[in-house]
């Protein structure tokens, strides 16, 4: 075999491996989604949305868990998104060239990838212990710690894309800086910031680990922010590990709902971002 043939062979082999790994990656996505459709879609009925979680052997649905998940996710977003957006604003506008900004940016990136169970442990220590009991609010706070770094990063990146000429033009008209930021820069970066918030919601709506020690779970329909609350991830966790067949079905339904809701949010986020990129 000539040297040329050998080089070509190595190239072909490695490129083949590259295609194979791509198929390997896609294979798992298909297998996972297929499992969810097979096991989850068939058991969806009206009762899932109208009845609360049942005792073993009884019929029931997931209504309290669905509402609970919406509440906890909502609290997490309402606390986390404004803080993340403001902090991102600081880094993009006021913090330019400051040492503190690069320190914040560094630790924000660390927080972004920190194990979520550690965040749960932290909120348990500062909120649950001082309140004396688990609560929906504590769960929301734990989730907000995931939303903050995500929205911060995207907000900063998007605001940096806004050209300085626009800021200078506004400043030349004598507009105070905070109005330049809130009325002009925010408007220009709006689709990016919304994308960040949507991705934040998508990220936290399936998170289980931070809720283990904070929101806990509730078998009953409770919508009290200061009491433990039912939520889909915890119900899935509890029901999947139970020995009861009908609880398994409900866990699969919950898994199906949560995954496809998150996939929809992710696709929505990409749709929102697209026009600003081309325009």
């Amino acid at each position: 075999m000539t040297r040329y043939q050998k080089r070509k062979l190595i190239n072909r082999f490695n490129m083949g491996a590259s295609v194979a790994t791509t198929l390997f990656g896609l294979f798992w996505l298909v297998w996972l989604l297929w499992t969810l459709i097979i096991n989850g879609a068939g058991h969806i009925d009206l009762a899932v949305f109208t009845q609360p979680t049942p005792a073993p052997g009884n019929s029931g649905g997931l209504s309290n868990a669905i509402v609970g998940s919406l509440i906890v996710t909502g609290v997490g977003t309402l606390i986390g998104a404004p803080i993340g957006i403001f902090a991102g604003t600081y880094l993009a506008e006021y913090g330019r060239g400051h040492k503190i900004a690069s320190v914040v940016r560094f630790f924000n990136d660390v927080l972004l990838s920190a194990p979520s169970i550690i965040l749960g442990l932290f909120v348990y220590e500062i909120v649950v212990v001082s309140m004396g009991h688990f609560s929906a609010l504590a769960g929301g706070i734990a989730l907000s710690l995931i939303v903050i770094p995500l929205t911060l990063r995207i907000t900063e990146n998007m605001m940096r894309l806004v050209s300085d000429q626009m800021r200078e033009a506004a400043a030349a008209l004598g507009i105070p800086r905070w109005l330049v930021i809130t009325r002009i820069v925010y408007r220009a970066a709006l689709s990016g910031i919304i994308t960040g918030v949507i991705l934040g919601i998508a990220r936290i709506s399936g998170e289980t680990a931070p809720l283990l020690f904070t929101a806990l779970n509730n078998q009953f329909s409770s919508y009290d922010l200061f009491a433990p609350i039912a939520n889909l991830p915890m119900v899935i966790f509890q029901y999947a590990l139970s020995p009861y067949e009908d609880w398994h079905h409900l866990a699969w339904v919950g898994a199906f709902l949560i995954t496809f809701a998150i996939l929809a949010l992710n696709i929505l986020a990409r749709v929102v971002l697209r026009p600003s990129k081309s325009g």
Binding site: L26, L32, A251, A255
Partner: peptide, 15 residues
């Protein structure tokens, strides 16, 4: 491939 990252951890666990 990015959607693989969007699927929650608990779904991987159950699967």
């Amino acid at each position: 491939i990015e959607l693989l990252a969007a699927i929650p951890s608990i779904i991987y666990g159950m699967w």
